[in-house]
Design a protein around this nucleic acid. Structure first.
Lengths: 130, 130
DNA sequence: AGGGAATATGCACGGGTAAGAATATGCAAG
DNA sequence: CTTGCATATTCTTACCCGTGCATATTCCCT
């Protein structure tokens, strides 16, 4: 992973928002959709872009794909993510994302599922969680 | 100047090298040419790109255009330049640029001119410096 | 005024990329 | 093995960008 590639990943707002959210822990695609309020294809493609360049890692969990920052990020990525964290502190979009994520977390804590429930679960919820 | 614009500026190697050099003080275009060993048009266009987005400022001094980092950079730019400085410390191209700049400086200290001498000066040197 | 030096700009071309619509894939439950 | 859900991929369109060639601009000196 080169420094240039890192900057190429950072120069799009959607990707910045994704990386910023991931700094607070892993997320699945449907949660990105809920928080960012962007179409699925857009989010999915930016996640693929980031994954191909090694800025995020993914794993599957049943229906869902869970994305996270690299477990062992290279020093350049680490430094730039820290810098990003500082820079966005005051920017409304990013604060909004953080807030929406917190509220989403609260909602999830109240119910059982780890990830979002399918649109028409019909009581499948519990089974899905296991 | 937005954060995205900063990252857009940072995602090209030539521009990274330019910004890295400017962290050590202002430079004219012909010095960039000597240090980076890239064609004039390439350097000039990248400098224009950076200037249009507010990452560098320029002033004219006789024959020469002198470029520098903004006198009062915004916090985001400041943070990212510091981050860049850390990140490139070990990268050969950037070390080479630093070395070449130091050697250029030594050469200039030995002679009088502030900037490089025209190709065929014919004794105009002293007059140019004043 | 005119020449020459340093630098900038216009034009052209190839390549990457962002976005959306449509479609495909992988998974789980019945 | 079919259905429904979450996610990925393909295709297309439009745009921006990096580069090089040629030319223009701006300045200094005579």
């Amino acid at each position: 992973m080169s420094l240039i590639q890192i900057y190429q990943c950072l120069c799009d707002e959607t990707r910045l928002r994704i990386l910023h959210l991931l700094q607070d822990g892993e997320l699945c695609v449907c949660h990105f959709q809920q928080i960012l309020e962007e179409p699925q294809v857009k989010i999915s493609k930016h996640l693929a872009y980031l994954r191909q360049r090694g800025l995020v890692e993914s794993r599957r969990d049943g229906y869902w794909m869970i994305y996270r920052l690299p477990v062992r990020p290279c020093p350049e990525l680490d430094a730039n993510l820290a810098c990003l964290h500082d820079c966005v502190r005051e920017i409304p979009v990013f604060r909004r994302d953080t807030d929406r994520r917190a509220r989403l977390r609260a909602r999830l804590a109240a119910t059982s599922p780890i990830c979002c429930t399918p649109a028409k679960p019909k009581g499948k919820k519990k089974a899905l969680v296991v």
